[in-house]
Design a protein around this nucleic acid. Sequence first.
DNA 1: TCGATGGTTCGGTATCGGCCGAAGCGTCCG
DNA 2: CGGACGCTTCGGCCGATACCGAACCATCGA
Lengths: 235, 235
Amino acid sequence: MTSQARFAEIAALVGDPARASMLHALLDGRALTASELASVSGITPQTASGHLARLTEAGLMTVIKQGRHRYHRLASSNVAQMMESIMCVAAESQAPTRLPRTGPRDVALRTARTCYDHLAGALAVALADAMIDKGLVELSDDAGVVTERGAAFIAMLGLGDPSEGSKRVFCRPCLDWSERRPHLAGRMGSALRHHSFERGWIRRIGDSRAVTVTPKGQQAFREHFGIRTEDLAAG
Amino acid sequence: MTSQARFAEIAALVGDPARASMLHALLDGRALTASELASVSGITPQTASGHLARLTEAGLMTVIKQGRHRYHRLASSNVAQMMESIMCVAAESQAPTRLPRTGPRDVALRTARTCYDHLAGALAVALADAMIDKGLVELSDDAGVVTERGAAFIAMLGLGDPSEGSKRVFCRPCLDWSERRPHLAGRMGSALRHHSFERGWIRRIGDSRAVTVTPKGQQAFREHFGIRTEDLAAG
DNA sequence: TCGATGGTTCGGTATCGGCCGAAGCGTCCG
DNA sequence: CGGACGCTTCGGCCGATACCGAACCATCGA
């Protein structure tokens, strides 16, 4: 098989609505069962089973057997990054004629959500902006770098692991499809997400990728980053 | 339309073999006519026309009318980045059972090729490695940054435009699907590609994205980067 | 004004693939 | 053991769509 055919194969797999729905459900890195995935996609378990077999065969997912359950998850962060880049194009190329048409469920997602191993949405963009303002990181559309002051800030918050690799190459900009502005990904974004859950700053909404900022989080984000998370939903 | 449906729509568009073939032909940023694209995809012009209309309607491509010709090109670098990330997954998830099966045409592509606005393949990875060795840039899988010495090197070669934005945030790592190692993209990669064509270091092979290193280029790459491009094809 | 050429639109055909019902495994629990 | 549960395989249906032939529109050169 030529590499071009394989390219089309991957894209075609991702391009089916039911499969896309499953992949989205797994986009925060959790592992779900076939029944759960069937449910979110609105199809029967046997149909879902077929889809999952194909996705796994193609190397987009991995499966863990556990008793009579089989847990499915994305095979790698590369798959998540690929999906993010497709969402980017989807948001960018939104024909200006047809309005965004955001359902109520999308509102929470646009405000704050997880994106595989980091945070996204208005909250993440606000955090990135705040860190840029304070001179902690520098971002362009292409790349990002942590400054000296940024490294100190990270250490203060107890984020990050200075032992591994270059400290400066520590963040990656990730174009946010809902905000169309870069937010923080990479090791820095990953640490920030982990930290925020750990300290109870954010909490998952139901079973989706959307998250909400707790009162404790509101205080923490104001104190450490100088942002008012209460205003995010409105903006 | 919900954002998830739009996600699937984009992926499905890219997932058709004929359309994928056209997109690949446009991946170096050139603009081609419908007939040319039909030819590379092995379909009739009228079929190609339908595909192109859909791709343009979806915002993946733009078209420029010029006399009786209509030149089609990728709508933005975001589309190219999306494709690159899909190729990444395609290469990574290559089931180990079925061998890579690289056709003779793929060999030239793997050695050196353009990737929208920068260089890719063994040549690009070798260049990135050389620049890391010399302490000109720092790269991780996630991010990249130009060092002080790197900035000086860029100025010496006449690359880059210091006037715009941060000088340090100047490069972006881009996982090479054929080498599975990062090469240089971003403004730095773009400048490097432009420079290499400009000075006659590399030349396009026929009408494909593949490029070959000229004798002049062999000397330049050895002199400035300390790499022997003659050995690339063998490795 | 007339071919010639590049491009698109239309209609009809054939294939592909997603979907579900029914039936067939394995695993857990009473 | 027997029933419940999770999941998969099989067979058949059906809608979506990629494809081409033919006809149609627009632009260029003579």
